[in-house]
Write a protein that binds this DNA or RNA. Structure first.
Length: 254
DNA sequence: ATGGTAGTTTGACTA
């Protein structure tokens, strides 16, 4: 079973690329982030015609997350609670695995209102995930965490230290999530750090490989023990109109 | 300290 995550930075701008990638990789589930479109304008028809079911949380212009699969999408949950104005979480069960697609707030700048929202969101997410995990022995949280887990996950940690993406406070929040009994399957196969999943569009960051690993798959131990391969599709940062993130995934023998 | 690019949208915001 292959499960992957990809921050596409607009599904409409990336639709051809996403459909081509789905056909080539044929994952059992793909988690998407930054759809940047209202439900009314989401390309359900194109994806359905290509064979993909969709469970999503939508809002115009910003955020938006989805899970795509050829299999039935069971027990869809949109958002952590009913009064969540930002579309940052969707969960569904695929072939007995609880799949959660998240887009953690970026936080913009330490000390800002957006950073306070990021920390509050992570706090709420921990509470939500604790309950979800209790209900689902096989669970994977996929998404853009906007947190650099280890120094080795940054091209130059000194440059990023103290930013919203890399500081002790956000790392404590990530550890707190993992303390619920979740494992970073990509990190376990790359103890030296990396591979990067995001490069800034600016300043020729990709050709200079000034990247970060911020797109993660956290799984319950049951799945982590069955993980036989992880991948980061770096080629998806190349060519015409790439996202600034690339797909990250894992194959599990279940 | 700032700017560099991209997407949505067509001005300003978010990343």
């Amino acid at each position: 079973m292959i499960i992957a995550t990809w921050n596409v930075n607009s599904i409409k701008a990336r639709l051809d690329r996403v459909i081509a990638w789905l056909g080539a990789r044929n994952p059992d589930a793909l988690c998407l982030q930054e759809l940047k479109t209202a439900r009314e304008a989401f390309p359900f028809q194109e994806l359905q015609e290509a064979g993909w079911n969709v469970a999503g949380a939508f809002q115009p212009t910003y955020n938006g997350v989805a899970v795509l699969s050829r299999h039935p999408l069971e027990e869809v949950a949109v958002g952590m609670d009913d009064d969540d104005p930002q579309a940052r979480l969707v969960a569904t069960t695929v072939r007995g695995v609880r799949v959660v697609s998240v887009y953690v707030p970026n936080g913009q700048e330490v000390g800002s209102e957006k950073y306070a929202y990021k920390l509050r969101w992570l706090e709420r997410f921990r509470g939500w995930l604790e309950q979800e995990r209790a209900r689902h022995p096989r669970l994977v949280v996929c998404g853009d965490f906007n947190i650099v887990p280890r120094d080795g996950d940054a091209h130059d940690p000194r440059v990023w230290q103290g930013t919203v993406l890399l500081n002790p406070e956000v790392r404590r929040h990530l550890s707190s999530l993992m303390d619920l009994g979740l494992r970073d399957v990509v990190a376990e196969r790359h103890p030296e750090g990396g591979p990067f999943s995001w490069w800034d569009y600016r300043a020729a960051s990709f050709p200079r490989n000034l990247g970060l690993r911020i797109d993660l798959l956290l799984t319950t131990p049951d799945l982590a023990d069955r993980c036989v391969e992880v991948f980061t599709d770096r080629d998806q940062r190349k060519g015409d109109r790439p996202s600034d993130h690339v797909p990250v995934g894992a194959r599990f023998e279940v």
